[in-house]
């Protein structure tokens, strides 16, 4: 059982993995609270900050993390920065979910076919239909 096998097929995951970024962004309760605030519609950074005891700087860091992870969209309106939920923000994580069963079924295929070969080792598909 190797606990930390690398991703041989598609290069290094880790930092660059979009699903990871989404998850890390959601791991913080302040950031989840921000998402709840903006679910009703676009809000300015200042309005969001007013809901928190944290400094404006702290809130703005959270906003950047959420925006980078693709969970928030960001636009400027004069001097204001406005934030809204990005409806595609969860796509990377949905892909992880969508990969659960295909991966498991691929393993099932491997296991069954290995077992079949053991059972039928001597004769190999020589039958006519």
């Amino acid at each position: 059982m190797s606990a930390a096998r690398g991703d041989a097929a598609s290069g290094a995951p880790g930092e660059g993995d979009p699903a990871d970024a989404v998850l890390r962004a959601l791991a913080d309760p302040h950031r989840r609270q921000i998402l709840r605030l903006v679910r009703g519609g676009e809000l300015a950074a200042g309005e969001i900050a007013s809901h928190f005891d944290a400094t404006q700087q702290g809130v703005s860091h959270h906003l950047q993390v959420l925006a980078k992870a693709g969970l928030l969209s960001e636009r400027r309106d004069g001097v204001r920065r406005l934030y809204a939920l990005d409806p595609h923000g969860l796509d990377p994580v949905r892909e992880v979910l969508a990969d659960l069963w295909p991966s498991a079924l691929e393993r099932l295929k491997y296991v069954v076919e290995q077992d079949q070969q053991k059972v039928a080792a001597p004769k190999r598909a020589g039958r006519k239909p």
Partner: peptide, 12 residues
Amino acid sequence: LDQLVRLGAWAA
């Protein structure tokens, strides 16, 4: 999400 990604990580 947390749940799914844990399952996903396991399934990788």
